[in-house]
Design a protein around this nucleic acid. Structure first.
Lengths: 213, 213, 213, 213
DNA sequence: CCATAAACGAGACGGTACGTCTTGTCTTTCT
DNA sequence: AGAAAGACAAGACGTACCGTCTCGTTTATGG
């Protein structure tokens, strides 16, 4: 948004010069934002609170972000990028053992575990809530946070179609929703408990259908 | 702490006497809350604004509701109850033509239409967002707003099981999520367009499975 | 003030029938008002508080009095009337031993003592403050609370003039101010300490003048 | 509680930095406060009203003053300081023609005139009333507003003592009350009319005594 | 000895102001 | 010029009382 290509267009208020930006402040703001959201919840997390905790002037936040949600989104994205670079099984890769059922169950179990980790749960809940009500932010969230994961599903489902494990006439962008949406709804809206058994069941029902064969 | 005649627990601040409540004020508050949410959005809807628009003292709101979300939830419930009593096809009945696919498609098309009506979309989005972040409210929303509809799905799916159109070993409470959750996620999180074709596809995929038969 | 002689004039809102007034409530209101003023101070004494403490409906106060100050004034007058009927030296009599200096010193010493009694100090301070800012109430206070005492001074000073102890060309209504006003100002405005020595000095200075003879 | 560099005691809420205070806002607040008190009276003068009229946020008032009375006191002091710097007879000087009676009459006549000027009367009445009930404020009023004038009286009376026009054994701090207190009481408590004749009489009575010589 | 009407307790109501909190802007000072 | 610091105008928060207005419930004659 607001692609700041090069020599900024004269918009009255001259845009900040990102080359002189303080990296230390950025990190401190990310850390403070995430910590506060986890500790006191999103509504009680304020720009002032973040600035104070980060040891930063308020203006430094307003200069670089447009809203509390914006700060949190970037902080969360940054967190996600960091964890990618951690050792261990790269979460940005989708397993492909040849058994689509087993592979999807695997991924969903990991997702369930993540949803039960407050460091993930609280900020992403907050962002999701904001995105529900603020369409612009919502679309940005989908594009920057969710789409990469969804693409992995699509890719794996295409492979399953090639292997004859999923019907060729099925749209993978819809198919993946059978795995993700019920879990997402239970998680976000507290409509039901989430567990490994539950996601396993989802995969079985989705693949084989509700109707008798 | 003052003689407490019978029921409610003594909460220090004696509870208001609901028999003396002003029905006119309640209605005015519901109307103002819904109108404001639609007009200016949830975050800019304030208790002060509702009170002013309803021609009511702020205390009258605080006396009977605990938060902005609480007001809006009751206003929305009230709206739902009213529309039930309107003429036309009762939305609290689930069609049963004997064809589960057709019946579910029918209901989902109506749901899609509702989601495209701003009078429904804006307040329910606001409530859903609040419920994501506030678990207590979220559970209340599920219980009071969503559960009645879900029960209709469950009931219809059980009938379909009896009729042999849905496998007997399928849990209807999970099965219904294949119809509802993908649509809900697209709607709430803007993850994709919603249309009659889309929901029709959902029903077909869900009933017959993703895997080849 | 709004003399309600007999068959009241049709003023729209029919005046309350004072013959049916509850004496018990009146007493309870007086007691509550005086107690609250002493305990929490005048500004924190509220009509609601008085009503609650007296076990009385707010309307019962509004029916018979026009303001908080009005209640307190009547309560205080009532208190004064009661103390008159107590045994001991009647304060409504001014001593006349033939020695004007001694008699005035006597009375002023009693006044000093009264000013140091919180039961008198707090409510009368509150009333005086209100009277400073609200002329109507101020005049009523003077007429109903202060004038009777002032008249005793005038009477005694006239006697002193007859006895040749005070110059005949002196206006007693001004002369009495030399005794009363300095003390009143020190008391009300905290401009100085008040004591028996102080009032004795006042009397001496006033009688014999500041200039050398 | 946070590093407190040097002087002021750590009060939890760090004190505002008075070097960065907006002079424009201060002036606007003084003007608004005085204007409102004169126009609508003290009780109907509210902090919100002052802020609105001054075009200032409420917090800017609460940051620098502790109460409505505090604002008004400083506004009034500021007004007094300003009028000192005006041309004309400096009110901070007490005339000394050698005739103590004439000089005091002079000053009292000016005081009477001031009491009849609503710009002075209304705010100072309000402050006096507040000081009657709030001892802390009262003492501050005396020290900051009244004492300077009283000192002039004391100084002039000492000179009169040196000149043999006032008895040497008289305490000037008490003597001055004969001039000031009766006038103050008539003014504040509406116990009588105030005029030049009245104050002239006060001076004569006070100097020569009530008793025959 | 009721009938009836007023005063009463209780407290909900539309309002106003309180004093606090946070927002997003602006200004000052330091680096 | 960026950043820390924080004052500022604006305005919502939730609370406390205001003075008015019903509600039943005493209570106290007067028919």
């Amino acid at each position: 948004m607001a692609a700041q290509k090069s020599t900024q267009p004269a918009t009255g208020k001259s845009a900040p010069d990102s080359t002189r930006r303080s990296e230390k402040s950025r990190r401190a703001i990310y850390d403070a934002a995430l910590a506060l959201v986890v500790e006191v919840g999103y509504p009680k997390t304020t720009i002032e609170g973040i600035a104070a905790r980060a040891g930063v002037g308020k203006q430094t936040i307003y200069r670089w972000w447009s809203s509390k949600a914006d700060v949190l989104m970037e902080a969360f994205l940054d967190l996600a990028e960091q964890s990618v670079q951690e050792p261990g099984p790269t979460p940005s890769a989708f397993p492909d053992t040849g058994d689509i059922a087993a592979d999807v169950k695997d991924v969903l179990r990991a997702t369930v575990d993540q949803m039960n980790d407050p460091r993930f749960d609280v900020p992403s809940r907050a962002l999701a809530a904001e995105g529900v009500v603020n369409e612009q932010l919502g679309r940005e969230l989908v594009a920057r946070l969710m789409q990469p994961s969804l693409d992995l599903y699509i890719h794996r489902l295409r492979a399953a179609q090639d292997a004859g494990q999923v019907r060729a006439d099925v749209d993978p962008r819809i198919a993946l929703e059978f795995f993700i949406s019920p879990l997402a709804q239970r998680w976000l809206q507290h409509t039901g408990p989430i567990s490994h058994e539950y996601t396993d069941t989802l995969v079985d029902y989705a693949l084989h259908g509700l109707a008798p064969r």
